[in-house]
Measured scan of single mutants.
Amino acid sequence: MTEYKLVVVGAGGVGKSALTIQLIQNHFVDEYDPTIEDSYRKQVVIDGETCLLDILDTAGQEEYSAMRDQYMRTGEGFLCVFAINNTKSFEDIHHYREQIKRVKDSEDVPMVLVGNKCDLPSRTVDTKQAQDLARSYGIPFIETSAKTRQGVDDAFYTLVREIRKHKEKMSKDGKKKKKKSKTKCVIM
């Protein structure tokens, strides 16, 4: 069974824990209790493949930012979460993405942009803004509501699919490099 290491990042209060708990335990946590770091595991079937999701729910508070490099190193894919009623959390996505790329030393890291709290009427981040940002990053965008469960499975499952595509691409690139290195030079 394939294991996928997913990391949920975003500013404090955007609903990272609520999304994760909704996926794992099928219930909505409405009281806000700032996370330092929590880890969850769940076995699911995605596109006919049974897999184990190892999900790291991270601290959004700035005082825990020193811990970010460590979990970013171990993560295979990242859910970059903002709240649709919090423009600052949307603007912060850029910083999370840049930090992930720096730590992973790669421009090509599996990510999904997630606009959470889409059940709320007080939207300050337009869907088109988020779609445009995701398009500019070359990553999928999904709106979710941890409260109603809308888009929750889709967000995590899409990230797994992005990781699969990335692994497939990397193995193809690896095979191309191996083929090239088999060419021999004969000096007579």
Score class of each variant (00 low, 15 high):
residue 130 A to P: 09
residue 60 G to W: 00
residue 116 N to Y: 01
residue 82 F to W: 09
residue 49 E to N: 12
residue 123 R to N: 14
residue 135 R to G: 12
residue 135 R to L: 11
residue 25 Q to V: 04
residue 35 T to D: 00
residue 182 K to N: 04
residue 129 Q to P: 13
residue 123 R to A: 10
residue 107 E to V: 06
residue 35 T to L: 00
residue 3 E to I: 09
residue 32 Y to V: 01
residue 137 Y to R: 12
residue 82 F to A: 14
residue 65 S to K: 12
residue 167 K to L: 05
residue 44 V to R: 10
residue 76 E to F: 04
residue 178 K to W: 07
residue 48 G to W: 05
residue 28 F to T: 01
residue 176 K to M: 08
residue 8 V to H: 02
residue 55 I to N: 03
residue 106 S to W: 13
residue 186 V to S: 08
residue 134 A to H: 15
residue 4 Y to K: 15
residue 34 P to H: 01
residue 39 S to H: 03
residue 115 G to N: 09
residue 108 D to S: 11
residue 98 E to W: 01
residue 59 A to K: 00
residue 101 K to C: 13
residue 185 C to A: 13
residue 72 M to G: 06
residue 112 V to I: 09
residue 114 V to C: 07
residue 146 A to S: 02
residue 16 K to M: 01
residue 7 V to A: 10
residue 15 G to A: 01
residue 7 V to N: 05
residue 111 M to P: 01
residue 37 E to F: 00
residue 136 S to F: 07
residue 112 V to N: 00
residue 130 A to S: 06
residue 26 N to D: 12
residue 135 R to W: 10
residue 49 E to H: 14
residue 158 T to W: 07
residue 6 L to P: 03
residue 126 D to I: 06
residue 83 A to W: 02
residue 153 D to I: 07
residue 72 M to F: 05
residue 4 Y to L: 12
residue 133 L to T: 10
residue 125 V to Y: 09
residue 81 V to D: 01
residue 64 Y to E: 02
residue 57 D to P: 00
residue 32 Y to Q: 02
residue 155 A to M: 13
residue 142 I to S: 15
residue 108 D to P: 03
residue 81 V to H: 12
residue 178 K to G: 10
residue 114 V to G: 01
residue 37 E to Q: 02
residue 105 D to W: 03
residue 132 D to Y: 05
residue 46 I to K: 12
residue 46 I to Q: 15
residue 33 D to F: 01
residue 157 Y to T: 10
residue 28 F to I: 02
residue 86 N to K: 08
residue 6 L to S: 15
residue 51 C to P: 13
residue 23 L to K: 15
residue 159 L to S: 02
residue 58 T to W: 00
residue 25 Q to C: 06
residue 127 T to L: 07
residue 147 K to R: 09
residue 66 A to F: 15
residue 29 V to L: 05
residue 107 E to F: 04
residue 125 V to G: 10
residue 137 Y to S: 14
residue 79 L to V: 08
residue 64 Y to S: 02
residue 69 D to K: 05
residue 70 Q to W: 03
residue 151 G to R: 11
residue 49 E to W: 05
residue 51 C to E: 10
residue 129 Q to M: 10
residue 69 D to W: 11
residue 23 L to G: 12
residue 109 V to S: 08
residue 38 D to I: 00
residue 139 I to S: 07
residue 125 V to N: 09
residue 128 K to L: 06
residue 55 I to S: 06
residue 101 K to S: 11
residue 2 T to L: 09
residue 180 K to E: 05
residue 2 T to F: 08
residue 178 K to T: 11
residue 153 D to Q: 09
residue 61 Q to A: 14
residue 45 V to C: 11
residue 27 H to D: 07
residue 18 A to C: 09
residue 44 V to M: 15
residue 70 Q to T: 13
residue 81 V to Y: 01
residue 87 T to A: 10
residue 107 E to W: 06
residue 20 T to V: 08
residue 130 A to Q: 13
residue 39 S to Q: 10
residue 104 K to T: 13
residue 172 K to Q: 03
residue 6 L to M: 13
residue 28 F to A: 01
residue 38 D to Y: 01
residue 49 E to Y: 12
residue 15 G to W: 02
residue 114 V to E: 01
residue 49 E to P: 13
residue 51 C to H: 13
residue 51 C to D: 10
residue 73 R to A: 11
residue 84 I to D: 14
residue 70 Q to V: 12
residue 6 L to C: 11
residue 133 L to F: 06
residue 46 I to E: 15
residue 27 H to Y: 13
residue 178 K to A: 09
residue 17 S to W: 00
residue 129 Q to F: 15
residue 128 K to W: 05
residue 166 H to A: 08
residue 74 T to G: 10
residue 34 P to M: 03
residue 31 E to Q: 14
residue 80 C to A: 06
residue 10 G to M: 01
residue 83 A to F: 03
residue 19 L to T: 11
residue 13 G to R: 07
residue 121 P to E: 12
residue 13 G to W: 13
residue 36 I to Q: 00
residue 54 D to I: 03
residue 36 I to E: 00
residue 152 V to E: 09
residue 33 D to N: 02
residue 9 V to E: 02
residue 145 S to D: 03
residue 115 G to C: 13
residue 67 M to W: 13
residue 126 D to Y: 08
residue 53 L to Y: 14
residue 74 T to N: 12
residue 138 G to H: 03
residue 83 A to E: 15
residue 18 A to W: 00
residue 98 E to R: 12
residue 144 T to D: 03
residue 169 K to M: 06
residue 24 I to W: 02
residue 91 E to C: 03
residue 78 F to C: 02
residue 78 F to N: 03
residue 32 Y to K: 00
residue 133 L to E: 10
residue 24 I to T: 06
residue 129 Q to L: 06
residue 54 D to Q: 14
residue 126 D to G: 07
residue 37 E to N: 01
residue 157 Y to K: 15
residue 84 I to R: 09
residue 86 N to L: 03
residue 38 D to K: 00
residue 123 R to G: 12
residue 19 L to Y: 04
residue 13 G to S: 12
residue 27 H to I: 10
residue 77 G to P: 01
residue 84 I to Y: 14
residue 131 Q to E: 11
residue 166 H to D: 11
residue 93 I to R: 15
residue 112 V to T: 08
residue 24 I to S: 05
residue 124 T to N: 08
residue 173 D to E: 06
residue 178 K to R: 09
residue 61 Q to H: 11
residue 35 T to R: 00
residue 10 G to V: 02
residue 2 T to H: 13
residue 9 V to N: 03
residue 47 D to I: 02
residue 184 K to A: 07
residue 3 E to T: 09
residue 8 V to W: 01
residue 72 M to H: 06
residue 113 L to G: 02
residue 181 S to Y: 15
residue 18 A to I: 04
residue 81 V to K: 02
residue 54 D to C: 04
residue 49 E to V: 09
residue 119 D to A: 15
residue 67 M to I: 03
